[in-house]
Design a protein around this nucleic acid. Sequence first.
DNA 1: ATGGCGGCTTGACAAATATCAAGCGATCCG
DNA 2: CGGATCGCTTGATATTTGTCAAGCCGCCAT
Lengths: 232, 232
Amino acid sequence: MPEAQYPEIRALGLFAEMAEANFLSLMRGAYVQNFPPHIELISEGEPSDFLHVVLSGSVDLFSTWNGRDTSLATVRPISTFILAATVKNAPYLMSARTLEKSRIVLIPSQDVRAIFDVDGSFARAIVTELAQCYRSVIKAQKDLKLRTSLERLANYLLRYQKRAGGAAAFDLDFEKRRLASVLGMTPENLSRAFKGLQPYGVTVEGTRIAIADQADLERFARPNPLIDDHST
Amino acid sequence: MPEAQYPEIRALGLFAEMAEANFLSLMRGAYVQNFPPHIELISEGEPSDFLHVVLSGSVDLFSTWNGRDTSLATVRPISTFILAATVKNAPYLMSARTLEKSRIVLIPSQDVRAIFDVDGSFARAIVTELAQCYRSVIKAQKDLKLRTSLERLANYLLRYQKRAGGAAAFDLDFEKRRLASVLGMTPENLSRAFKGLQPYGVTVEGTRIAIADQADLERFARPNPLIDDHST
DNA sequence: ATGGCGGCTTGACAAATATCAAGCGATCCG
DNA sequence: CGGATCGCTTGATATTTGTCAAGCCGCCAT
């Protein structure tokens, strides 16, 4: 892959501290690829040949069973996905598809495992990354098991608002049907859930969401850092 | 803690490969404690002072929000819990309570982090453990989002049967109300779900479960290694 | 033994959620 | 400019799940 892109990868927590020689060795086997929207990058059950790094665009991690499917997470730049499968040399548990045009680095999994075996800094960085991922899924699990769909939506909107800069109005930059899937409900029920939040000052016009009174919505949503703060 | 117990801890994947000196250093700060049943060991939100290792008994990991609560996992000997919080030096995301009389090792988190910084083997072992935990939660998440409660119960019984030795009849060694919570339903609905599995040959008498025709139940349950095989 | 107590089950009912069908309103393309 | 397509919304209805109340049963302690 072109050396021009090394710095932005090197800047990732995962690669920042490792020995230069090992980093270069990883990069030598890696390559960057541009994908159009809606391309399936990997399928669950396949062997984990590559660690993926999203440089631009976004990727949907989803899973299928018995004719149903569900979105489990969205990967945004700049971060990696399927690290756990790579280090365990186990099959992917989720499939991945681009949501939009995306630039993605592919690093052969065996290289990652080889360097991981010899570079303690890299191993420690992987620990931090995995611990972060683990805690995020636990939070998602709590969200799903402890809250109703209306509460999940309310808290999602509050998180999204914060990430979008905190303004009272903001745009959803992806399809509502995906949001429904992420939140564990049907698109029809998402529509109704938005209506159900009107009494708390939420208005929707197309992709534009407005929160009239944040404190009011929070009184209903009861956000909790142990579920909603995805930075710790 | 008594040196007599070092070997069984040392035998854990997490501690097997690390340098002897570092292992001893970890053990020096650790201590074993016996807990009666139904004791809350840790509460979510607290700082993660200790890495826990269950030597005997069993521990329920659960979480609470807005007056509701849910069981997220059961820890059985010999394994650790709250490793992620320990390495990230972040608050616990789950509470833990003993289900029965349990012997538990407490290792100060700061010792774990200190050794983790200097012992590459230990760091690598932590990676493997965390990757395993991560993948388990992803599987639980898929189970919850892709299956109905009846399907979850059916697959749970098949997994439990396999773990209990594969016999057609076996005993549930914990309360059904906990099973209901683990499966994300109410005790009342668990009762009804058991009845709903009767047409597939499942019979229940107290804690005793019998699966008349495993193939029949599997036709309904459609177990999938990417959800139900917790060993990879 | 026997009187509570707790967990489990059952039934009736309520609430939440999914499904099905139809219509609306953008956008894309011939 | 139609006309088709696709995602979203809405209403009607079915299914699933939760809630409440009552009763059952085994267990423990007096």
